[in-house]
Design a protein around this nucleic acid. Structure first.
Lengths: 392, 392
DNA sequence: CTGAAAGCGCTTACAG
DNA sequence: CTGAAAGCGCTTACAG
């Protein structure tokens, strides 16, 4: 630790210039009362400035430096330092650079709470996660969160994560009324979403990940309808005559969209959709298995699965039945994840970039917060990955 | 919207009593300059108080109420309101209850930034997540995060999530120096952890999830050593003569612990550990498969897998080899997750409660933040789940 | 038990 | 281009 000497006494300059604190280096018992001095004194002591620099520099536990400290060191006012940091207001280039250099060198970070209070903005956004615990759902939200975090981080925002049961609005209310966040991202919305209503009423900037029926809600989603439509169209083009659809829960918007795309492809191809080939309420493994058995008997050529959770069960069931993919049954999934990587046969699927979904959601939210106009709906791209499972 | 009338004019009381703002209800064009009035005026207007109450009550977008607003409404000082809310300092029970009731009724929440600034505490903690994208790792961190969030939430703390590459300390540094968090939870630590070093130096309260070699780091973990030791001991007790061990990465502390438990059980049982039965560097599926083949030839009775990712591959490989579990080979895993649910045969495994791990970590951190003394190491319980895969 | 006042560390009109 | 001062909305000794 570098010491600062005055009149032969070791002293340590802390915090505010008005309170020079004498520290116990040696001769602890002696009185250092005479060391009290004013700003003027210090300014006239040529060694002082260097001393202070060094102190702030190498002490891991230095008491928080403030904007005033750097102002004093540099002989400017706090206002000027503030301007240099924020880039707002007129400031001389030379002054700015000098201040910025000092700040960089000494690792000064402004107190977030003080900034918040003065500017009524927190540089925090909340991301609302549902309580999920299935291996299919978890990766989606986790990956999405990563994307959000990445963009937030890059813009000097932090994300506050709150998990909810989809019903209790208290946690959101607290966050908003406490002014802890500038905006919110809802990662799952429901038909009649309480949170959406609440946030609209509070006039808080927020975006919904996924499709939402309400038009005045800013949403970011993959083009599930278009993707499924194209997937089915491609399969038709490959000469497949009929394609069955296996889905689980039509309450969730994403599932609706996928089924809708499937339907539209049939219409577009001017083919008749046989409702016997459609299952949209498979809520258990047993039901999936039964469906697969029925479909095999019906002689359908291809099974399109709403997601890879269902696809996983379909593939396993077919294996147990001794049905070879793709020779005896073709299979495709509307969603790719690593679950699909563990089969002997590779699976044709749609591929969505979930991280990108998170990134874009965050970007849109930040734009809203900063008062830019944003598109009501942002639709992200998809890939169709054709693999062995639909070959032939 | 309830209107407040004065002299026959509709007016709307906003925010601070000093700035009565006239709103455009009707007769918009007329000048309302004469409506400007002072605090005193309002106090003498008997209808005023009710008016204000109603306004704050039913307007979704009322400008933030402050402690002064409620103080004024109740005829007390801001200090008193603060005391009622915080519960600190002496305050009359009657006054307190009156204030609390008012606050409850009008949904007043104190501004978090102002509280932060005044008290130098944020009521935020950070949870540091590694960048992972495997189906095995993701659920762990996600589930752990849920646990942390649950306890944080219950204590009126919010969690700021930051994902890191394990190397760059800038994000942590920003969070700390900006004073955005009161403490941190590291969900994955490495042998020579940069973050740990950094946090120790900064003297920030933090806890490490999982075992960490350094003794002066507060850690919360499952008793992996004890659990594996007991698992192996139980298997021995069931009459199994030799047990192979399949693991992947000895860099991670958790894997070390599990292997250590395995070893200790051998020692405790006074059995000779044949190193041919031990694989601790299986970094690919091919290597696992080769190991399984070798072990089958060696005539070993049981395979203990470091985690269910390895177990998954073992089970599949055995199936492909036509080896029946448990008749021809017994299998157990040192970690249970839903991955293990999809087999025709149920798998014996250790079961750790990851959510609880998160909860406890958070609890310990909060205790540290609040200046309580906490145990250096908190070891959580485990369950041994005996299933078909080791029967007989 | 309660209130007036100073302070937390920034920002931002305002005046020069 | 720069500084002094007021303000953001709380908390907390201090005095009564």
């Amino acid at each position: 630790m570098l010491l600062l000497y005055r009149n032969g006494w070791p002293i340590c300059v802390k915090r505010r210039i008005e309170s020079i604190v004498v520290k116990c280096y040696y001769d602890y018992e002696q009185s250092f009362a005479h060391e009290k001095q004013t700003l003027e004194d210090i300014k006239q002591t040529d060694c002082a400035e260097n001393g202070v620099n060094e102190m702030n520099n190498n002490s891991g536990n230095d008491k928080t430096m403030t904007i005033h400290d750097v102002a004093r060191e540099l002989g400017v006012s706090a206002s000027t330092v503030s301007r240099a940091i924020s880039g707002k207001g007129r400031i001389g280039a030379a002054t700015r650079d000098r201040i910025l250099a000092y700040i960089e060198e000494h690792g000064f970070y402004p107190n977030a709470a003080a900034q918040s209070l003065a500017q009524s903005r927190t540089n925090n956004i909340a991301i609302i996660l549902p309580e999920v615990n299935t291996l299919v759902d978890m990766p989606f939200f986790h990956t999405c969160m990563y994307g959000v975090e990445e963009v937030a981080q890059a813009n000097d925002y932090d994300i506050i994560v709150v998990t909810t049961n989809g019903n209790d609005t208290k946690p959101l209310e607290r966050l908003i009324k406490n002014r802890k966040v500038d905006g919110m991202i809802l990662t799952r919305t429901y038909e009649n979403d309480k949170y959406v209503k609440f946030l609209k009423q509070k006039q808080i900037p927020f975006v919904a990940v996924g499709k939402f029926p309400d038009d005045d809600v800013v949403q970011v989603d993959h083009d599930n309808v278009g993707a499924c439509k194209e997937m089915v169209t491609v399969l038709f083009a490959k000469g497949i005559q009929n394609i069955a659809y296996l889905g689980s829960n039509m309450d969730q918007m994403v599932n609706r969209c996928r089924y809708q795309g499937y339907e539209e492809a049939y219409r577009k191809g001017k083919r008749k959709l046989n409702q016997d080939l459609v299952y949209t309420d498979l809520s258990s493994r047993a039901m999936v298995e039964k469906a697969v058995e029925e479909l095999k008997k019906s002689g359908v050529e291809c099974i399109l699965c709403q997601d890879d959770y269902i696809c996983d069960e379909v593939v396993r069931k077919l294996a147990r039945m001794g049905v070879r993919i793709p020779d005896q049954m073709k299979v495709a999934s509307c969603h790719y994840s690593r679950i699909l990587e563990n089969y002997p046969v590779t699976i044709t699927s749609l591929k969505f970039n979930i991280t990108e979904l998170g990134r874009r959601s965050c970007q849109v939210l930040l734009d809203m917060i900063h008062g830019k106009t944003v598109p009501d709906k942002t639709l992200l791209d998809y890939e169709i990955i054709l693999k062995e499972s639909t070959k032939g």
